[in-house]
């Protein structure tokens, strides 16, 4: 049973946006009213707005800054984001910007989210990002984010990958990393997200595996 609000936060470049977009699409299979809010104030590129078309097709409301993907390089939040807490009929997915700096923007919604108390806050991790290669460095980022936004994580999403070249072995090699973070913090690993191409191999060995689709392809991407 999904909670009404699901928040994705984590280290810069851990894959939060792609996980959040996929999660919103899964939610839309079970619920008629789903929204996704882009609260990224750190990075002007690779936003959930890139996936606007597929979200629209599934009737998912995209809440994003009018300046996303424009040349206005300003950390603006969309006014509509208050509907995350105001619209209680809607399942909301919240895509938070990277690191503690990005999580700062979540802070203003936190009192209302805590009061309603119907949320999950997931920490997205990737073992193959250079500044979070081990459990301790990942936990350091985790605590910085919690301190910055004033909320505690309730689950871990293991999104360990090296992009298009990811092999099932690399995903498998990240299980111990995710488990160690979980053991040291007492927070469960709720999902192991893997590229849909290698999902068939992973689902055999990891029951919480979920297949990720990359909805945006750029002209400069290889293959």
């Amino acid at each position: 049973m999904s909670k009404r609000v699901t928040i994705f936060a984590g280290h810069y470049g851990s894959g939060k946006t792609n996980v959040a977009v996929n999660y919103a699409l899964w939610l839309s299979e079970e619920h008629s009213k789903v929204s996704i809010a882009d609260l990224d104030i750190v990075n002007p590129y690779f936003r959930s707005k890139d996936s606007e078309k597929v979200l629209e097709e599934k009737g998912i409301r995209l809440i994003s800054s009018a300046f996303a993907n424009s040349n206005v390089d300003t950390p603006a939040l969309p006014a509509e984001a208050y509907s995350i807490t105001a619209d209680k009929d809607c399942y909301a997915v919240v895509d938070v910007g990277g690191d503690d700096r990005g999580a700062l923007a979540l802070g203003r919604y936190v009192p209302d989210i805590l009061e309603e108390n119907n949320y999950e806050m997931y920490f997205v991790i990737n073992k193959y990002r250079p500044l979070t290669p081990d459990a301790d460095s990942a936990i350091e980022v985790m605590r910085e984010i919690e301190y910055s936004c004033g909320m505690r994580f309730t689950g871990i999403v293991n999104n360990s990958n090296i992009g298009e070249e990811t092999t099932p072995e690399e995903v498998q090699n990240s299980f111990a990393y995710a488990d160690e973070i979980s053991a040291k913090t007492g927070i469960p690993v709720v999902m192991t997200t893997v590229d849909k191409r290698i999902y068939p191999q992973i689902k055999e060995i990891k029951e919480n595996a979920k297949p990720l689709t990359l909805y945006v392809r750029q002209s400069w991407q290889r293959g």
Binding site: G13, N126, Y128, R129, P130, P133, I162, G163, E165
Partner: peptide, 11 residues
């Protein structure tokens, strides 16, 4: 050595 996933700027 094992590969890591990096942004060009970080790399």
């Amino acid at each position: 050595s094992e590969k890591v996933l990096m942004k060009g700027n970080e790399a």
